[in-house]
Simulated assay, not measured.
Amino acid sequence: MLVDSHCHLDFPDFQSRLPEVLSAASGAGVDRMVTISTHVARMEIYRALAEAHESVFYTVGTHPHNAALEPDVPAERLIALSHHPRCVAIGEAGLDYHYDKSPRDVQQRVFRTHIEAARETGLPLVIHSRNADEDMIQILSEEMRRGRFDAVLHCFSSGEKLAQIGVELGLYVSFSGILTFRNSEEIRRIAAAVPHDRLLVETDAPYLAPVPYRGKTNEPAYVAHTARVLAEVIGVTDHEIAQLTTANFYRLFAKAAVADAEFRRAPA
């Protein structure tokens, strides 16, 4: 079993073919996936996806691109929305200085609000970080001193320093199809140095399809290709990487394990 720890099943790419996408994922051994919130305003859509499909969990949060559209969602609102049994994390939230679609000070403020919600709920925070390593390190270090919270650096494509400090702070690191790209030697080197108990895999579908599907629409089934490359990087078998990353997923996203257990106990 593999878990796609980060995808966007609500995006238009999947609207007309979601049953096919979920079936392909199951056929590839990808039995669980987390559809990630980018707008709090779309929460009913994420919730409906998770309620309709046993294999799907969801999160609550505002992507940094959309921070200016949702600048004042309080932590209390995020916390209240996270109470649904299939909502397993806060985010994705963070900093994106590559596109700068929202002012940086707004991104930072919204990010800190999400950290507060993660800390209060005990749910992991899904972190987006692009071209913002120094500010990300500063905020994570400051906020961790204020009180611990669990988190994952998703779709890791940043520098070695952020990975190292993230691990030191207790964070997990998730790798996407970028890991499989020919010019990603540095990312593979960083992945090799991450402790095995902090590794996750994801697609970030519909983006960043791994080799051999690069340039096509990504989907959860393709996480198996990223997992295969990660297995080669750290020197384990495909079976072992599936076991390892799935165990790590359920350790970090502990609410998902509770939801699965309750589903199995429910009467037919």
Rank of each mutant, 00 (worst) to 15 (best):
G235C: 04
F253P: 05
S184P: 14
T180D: 13
H225M: 10
Y172I: 12
F181I: 14
F14T: 12
G159Q: 05
I115P: 03
N218Y: 06
L171K: 01
E240W: 00
A242H: 03
Y213M: 08
C7T: 14
S176V: 07
E92C: 00
S174K: 05
F253T: 08
E232W: 02
S141E: 10
K216P: 13
A50K: 07
S158N: 15
D260M: 13
A151M: 14
A193G: 13
S26R: 14
A67V: 06
I36W: 00
P220I: 07
G159I: 08
A257F: 08
L208S: 12
E120Y: 02
L244A: 06
L2P: 08
S55Q: 14
D96G: 11
D4S: 05
R104T: 02
S37K: 02
H154E: 07
S141I: 03
R145W: 04
D100Q: 13
V88R: 00
P71C: 08
A224I: 07
L123N: 01
F253D: 03
A163R: 11
G91L: 01
T245S: 08
A80K: 06
R77F: 07
R148K: 08
F111Q: 06
F175N: 10
E51I: 05
A41F: 01
V236S: 01
A256M: 05
H84L: 04
E262W: 03
R188P: 15
S82C: 03
T62W: 02
R265S: 09
R251H: 11
K216H: 14
L95M: 09
A221L: 02
Y97H: 04
P71V: 07
M33A: 09
Q138I: 06
E134W: 00
A209N: 07
G159W: 02
A163D: 13
Q108W: 00
E44S: 14
I234G: 04
A48G: 14
S55E: 12
V223Q: 02
V167T: 12
M1K: 12
S82Q: 02
H84K: 04
Y58D: 03
C155F: 15
Y58I: 12
R148I: 03
R228S: 15
V106R: 06
A132E: 03
G122R: 00
Y222S: 01
L9E: 09
L49W: 01
D4V: 05
I45H: 11
S26M: 07
H98D: 14
D31N: 13
